[in-house]
């Protein structure tokens, strides 16, 4: 464990807490893409299959349970909670994310560390996470004005993977046989997708203005 990875995990946890706060406090999920939430639930379920077979640390197990639990709770809330689902931007959240799932699964069958079921699913979860934010970014551009909590949620979600890239660089230089090129390349793509969001987020912070994404 290094400071970049711990900070990355805490940033990821913070993004989830901000999203839960938004949904719980405002009883609204406007501006939040249900498709991105569903993709993230799938990412965690596919990646944390070894939750009960490979014990790595208490921290690792607890965080996995938190990520799986919170992502499923958010999907459930946006689908079933009568107050919350009324505020869901159904007509804006139309990105066909099933193509992302199919594409990532095919890629995982072709490019993986070992052609074994757990490894293919792990690679699938890595690729899927890299593109899972696309429906959310598309929704933000379509809905124009972004409320603060939603903006902070997306910012934290993007920042955590950027911190993981620093973690991979650190581990590459400090651990002899470290190679996570699949996670690294996917992480770079994932972070690059946030580039223009980070730019407008920084502008809104600098000018102390409302976050506006050009539609």
């Amino acid at each position: 464990m290094n400071v970049f990875r711990l900070t990355g995990d805490m940033t990821h946890l913070a993004s989830i807490l901000v999203l839960l706060l938004k949904i719980y406090a405002t009883k609204s999920c406007s501006g939040i893409s249900l498709k991105t939430q569903e993709l993230y639930a799938l990412v965690f379920l596919a990646r944390y299959l070894n939750l009960f077979t490979d014990f790595i640390s208490v921290y690792n197990t607890v965080m996995k349970l938190v990520f799986i639990g919170s992502s499923l709770a958010i999907v459930w809330c946006m689908r079933m909670h009568k107050m919350v689902k009324r505020s869901y931007d159904q007509e804006l959240d139309t990105f066909r994310h099933y193509f992302l799932i199919a594409g990532c699964f095919l890629l995982a069958l072709l490019v993986n560390e070992k052609f074994m079921f757990p490894e293919v699913l792990w690679a699938f979860s890595i690729y899927l996470e890299a593109v899972s934010t696309i429906p959310q970014l598309v929704l933000l551009q379509r809905s124009g004005n972004v409320d603060n909590l939603t903006g902070q949620y997306v910012f934290l979600l993007g920042a955590y993977r950027a911190l993981y890239i620093l973690n991979w660089i650190y581990r590459y230089f400090t651990e002899p046989h470290f190679s996570r090129w699949i996670a690294c390349v996917a992480g770079l793509v994932q972070t690059a997708l946030y580039a223009d969001f980070f730019y407008y987020y920084f502008l809104s912070w600098k000018n102390n203005a409302k976050l506006q994404l050009p539609s």
Binding site: R5, D9, H12, R47, N50, D54, I56, N60, M63, K64, F67, E113, K114, E119, W122, Y164, N167, R180, A183
Partner: peptide, 10 residues
Amino acid sequence: LLEREHHDEL
């Protein structure tokens, strides 16, 4: 013995 690639990261 090939140490199985442990995915120790989240």
